[in-house]
Computed example of a mutant assay.
Amino acid sequence: MSNIIPFNFEDQAVRVITRDGEPWFVLADVCSVLDIRNSRDAANRLDDDERGVSITDTLGGPQEMTVINESGLYSLVLTSRKPTAKRFKKWITSEVIPSIRKTGGYIVAAPEETPEELALRAMTILQATVERQKQQLAEAQPKAEAHDRIAGADGSLNITEAAKALQVRPKDLFAWLSCNGWIYKRPGSLSWLGYQSRTTNGDLVHKIMTILRPDGSEKVSEQVRITPKGIAKLAKLMPERLRVVA
Rank of each mutant, 00 (worst) to 15 (best):
residue 151 A to Y: 09
residue 101 R to D: 02
residue 120 L to T: 12
residue 157 L to C: 08
residue 99 S to I: 06
residue 161 E to H: 07
residue 161 E to Y: 07
residue 144 A to L: 09
residue 153 A to R: 01
residue 116 E to M: 02
residue 97 I to R: 01
residue 115 P to L: 08
residue 144 A to N: 07
residue 125 I to E: 05
residue 113 E to F: 07
residue 159 I to V: 08
residue 111 P to W: 04
residue 125 I to G: 02
residue 132 R to E: 04
residue 152 G to W: 04
residue 164 K to E: 04
residue 112 E to W: 13
residue 103 T to A: 11
residue 119 A to E: 04
residue 140 A to H: 11
residue 104 G to R: 03
residue 104 G to V: 05
residue 133 Q to G: 10
residue 131 E to L: 11
residue 155 G to D: 03
residue 125 I to N: 01
residue 99 S to V: 08
residue 140 A to W: 08
residue 150 I to A: 15
residue 112 E to Y: 08
residue 120 L to R: 15
residue 130 V to I: 09
residue 127 Q to C: 09
residue 117 E to N: 06
residue 124 T to D: 09
residue 118 L to F: 11
residue 109 A to V: 06
residue 135 Q to Y: 11
residue 139 E to H: 11
residue 93 T to L: 13
residue 149 R to K: 14
residue 121 R to H: 03
residue 124 T to L: 07
residue 117 E to I: 07
residue 104 G to H: 02
residue 111 P to R: 08
residue 112 E to H: 11
residue 150 I to L: 12
residue 153 A to S: 12
residue 109 A to T: 10
residue 117 E to K: 10
residue 159 I to A: 07
residue 126 L to C: 10
residue 108 V to F: 08
residue 149 R to F: 14
residue 106 Y to Q: 00
residue 144 A to K: 07
residue 119 A to S: 07
residue 155 G to V: 06
residue 111 P to M: 07
residue 159 I to Q: 15
residue 103 T to P: 00
residue 111 P to E: 11
residue 152 G to Q: 10
residue 107 I to H: 00
residue 137 L to V: 08
residue 146 A to Q: 11
residue 163 A to K: 01
residue 164 K to I: 02
residue 151 A to K: 08
residue 160 T to D: 11
residue 131 E to M: 10
residue 152 G to T: 10
residue 106 Y to D: 00
residue 142 P to D: 12
residue 130 V to T: 15
residue 130 V to H: 05
residue 101 R to M: 07
residue 163 A to T: 02
residue 100 I to Y: 03
residue 118 L to D: 01
residue 141 Q to E: 13
residue 148 D to T: 03
residue 138 A to Q: 15
residue 140 A to Q: 13
residue 127 Q to T: 14
residue 146 A to S: 13
residue 108 V to G: 09
residue 123 M to Y: 14
residue 123 M to D: 11
residue 160 T to C: 07
residue 131 E to I: 12
residue 136 Q to I: 10
residue 93 T to R: 11
residue 106 Y to A: 00
residue 95 E to Y: 01
residue 122 A to H: 01
residue 114 T to V: 09
residue 127 Q to I: 11
residue 103 T to V: 10
residue 143 K to V: 06
residue 155 G to W: 04
residue 157 L to T: 09
residue 125 I to K: 02
residue 153 A to V: 09
residue 121 R to M: 02
residue 162 A to W: 10
residue 120 L to K: 15
residue 160 T to L: 07
residue 143 K to A: 12
residue 156 S to V: 05
residue 107 I to M: 02
residue 156 S to C: 12
residue 134 K to D: 09
residue 131 E to Q: 14
residue 107 I to N: 00
residue 103 T to R: 11
residue 123 M to H: 15
residue 158 N to W: 06
residue 139 E to R: 14
residue 101 R to T: 09
residue 146 A to G: 12
residue 114 T to K: 07
residue 124 T to Y: 03
residue 123 M to W: 13
residue 164 K to R: 13
residue 138 A to K: 15
residue 92 I to D: 00
residue 98 P to L: 01
residue 134 K to Y: 06
residue 162 A to H: 05
residue 112 E to S: 14
residue 108 V to W: 06
residue 157 L to S: 09
residue 136 Q to N: 14
residue 159 I to S: 04
residue 153 A to P: 00
residue 117 E to W: 05
residue 161 E to T: 06
residue 118 L to T: 08
residue 94 S to V: 09
residue 92 I to A: 05
residue 161 E to V: 03
residue 102 K to V: 01
residue 130 V to F: 05
residue 97 I to N: 00
residue 124 T to G: 08
residue 116 E to Y: 02
residue 164 K to F: 01
residue 143 K to Q: 10
